[in-house]
Structures are given as C-alpha cells and as structure tokens.
C-alpha cells in the first residue's frame, strides 16, 4: 500500500498574535507543523509498521520547510515532496486540493491521510475537496484506521450521532482528528538519519501545472482583512477561605450576572 500524507507549515497557535492594518503582524511569530498533520503522519507510520506500506509526505507552500519535513522523516516517513511556488501565497483550500491532486496522480497512491484541518485557517476543506476532485471515497474526522484487506480499510469517524464505522474502498482519502493517536517524539537515531534524507522539491511548472490551471487566478473567495478577535476581559478572581469566596461568587452569579 502506498500512503500519501499531507503536511502543512503553519503559524504556532500557542504564541501571541497581533493584528495591524488588517494584517497579522509577522514579528515574533514562529512556524511549526500543523498539529493535525502530525496525527496524520503518526497514523501513516503506524500503518507502515503494522502492515506493508510505503509512506510519502507532501508539503505544499511555506518557503523553507526543511525542519518540519525532517521531523516527519525522524518519525518514520520514508519519502518527502515539497511543492513550493511564490504563486501559492494566496491560495485557498481548493487550489491546495488541486495541487495535491496533481501529486496524487503522479504517484499512484492507495491512501491519502490529511489532518482534519490546518491551524492557520481552521477551514477543514482541503482533504475533502481533494477526494471530490479525484472521485474517490472520503471519510473525515477519523479516530481509527484499520486495514481490512488489499482493497479496503475500515475507519471510525466521530459523527453527530456517535461513532460511525465505515468501510472504504481504496484508493481513498481520510482526514484525521487529534483523537486518533498521540504523535511520537522523534528519537535521536531517527533525527540523525533524517538529516541525510533528500527532499524532492518542485515548483508548479515541474509538477506539470500552473497557478492559472489550478484556478488560482480566479479564486472563489479571498481574505481581504484580518481583525483582532473579541477578547474577553479577565473578570473577578477570588482567593481565600473556600466557603466564604464560593458564597460570594454564587451571590454575584445570582445578583450581578443574573444567571440563577
């Protein structure tokens, strides 16, 4: 089985973020691997370990992605492709999905695993759109993957009514939740080996396409402004004798906030 895993470089959500003149202030930001893609990498590596599989990652955009790709190598991914092109700076989910479609078509993969969303947009569209463009089955928000036979996998999905068990015919796309696994920490040996591994870098032309072909020049929507989120003010905090402060807070909830 050939598995393709997608890995996006995103801004570190744990750091503070500021908005000025409709844009995010770059100063002080750091970039990391999208957390949900780390779960996708872990899921791929586990499939490789428990079954016969070959694992390849693809990262689209992001400039210098050496660090995050090496991290995935150190976790056990075997091959890496980085598609980068300045044209992709403004790309939306649909364009990303079409880039992935090209990569997929060049590689005859059986299974694509993506994170359920990327932390820079929280959109959750790319993997599902990729499946639509490819015309292959797709299950999103997956919390378990099991190989059923040569042609099928069985996945568990967290749905609205409970956990759905779905059998998928390969090739297929799944998008994974962070509940699927706990990504491993790379070990020293893996880190050393990762440094020697090559990354296959391509621009859109090398991939046999162009920004225009991918629908990039006619984006269906575009972000025109970033704004600061409404932040909540810290309210009143009480320390001291538990009985006293708890009674005081309940009084405020009843008389000031009027929730009881």
């Amino acid at each position: 089985m050939k598995i393709l895993t997608t890995v996006k470089k995103v801004v570190d959500v744990e750091l503070n973020m500021h908005v000025k003149d409709g844009a995010i202030v770059e100063d002080g930001l750091q970039y990391v691997i999208n957390a949900w893609d780390e779960n996708a990498v872990e899921a791929s590596v586990q499939l490789k370990e428990n079954n016969k599989a070959e694992t390849t990652l693809v990262s689209v955009g992001g400039g210098d992605n050496t660090d995050i790709i090496r991290k995935c190598y150190a976790m056990g991914i075997e091959n890496g492709i980085h598609i980068d092109d300045p044209a992709l700076d403004k790309a939306d989910s649909s364009v990303f999905a079409k880039v992935l479609q090209k990569v997929y078509e060049n590689g005859a993969y059986d299974l694509v695993i993506t994170g359920k969303q990327a932390q820079d947009t929280d959109s959750g569209q790319t993997g599902i759109m990729l499946a639509e463009y490819l015309g292959v089955p797709c299950v999103s928000n997956v919390i378990a993957i099991e190989v059923a036979d040569e042609q099928h996998i069985k996945v568990s999905r967290l749905g609205d009514a409970g956990t759905e068990i779905v059998e998928l015919e390969l090739p297929a796309v799944v998008t994974v939740s962070d509940s699927i696994n706990e990504p491993r920490l790379p070990q020293m040996r893996g880190i050393m080996m990762a440094k020697k591994k090559k990354i296959k870098k391509m621009d859109l032309a090398a991939l046999g396409t162009s920004y225009d072909d991918l629908g990039g020049t006619g984006l269906k929507s575009e972000v025109i402004e970033f704004m600061a989120s409404k932040t909540r003010e810290a309210g009143q905090k009480f320390e001291g004798d538990p009985a006293e402060i708890t009674a005081q807070v309940v009084g405020l909830l009843a008389n000031e906030a009027k929730v009881f």
Binding site: V11, V13, M17, V19, I24, Q119, D120, T121, D122, S123, G218, L219, K220, S221, E222, V223, I224, E225, F226, M227, A228, S229
Partner: peptide, 22 residues
C-alpha cells in the same frame, strides 16, 4: 462577504466571495 475566526480563534478573517454562490 463573511466573517469567521481563524488560528484557534486568535484572529478574525473578513472574506470576500468572488462567485455568486457560497
């Protein structure tokens, strides 16, 4: 046009839709 949070709610995005269907 739509507004939505991004980056774990740290910022809001204003998005212009270029098609007549959203």
């Amino acid at each position: 046009e739509v507004v939505r949070p991004a980056i774990a709610n740290k910022v809001m995005q204003r998005i212009k839709v270029n098609t007549d269907q959203l």
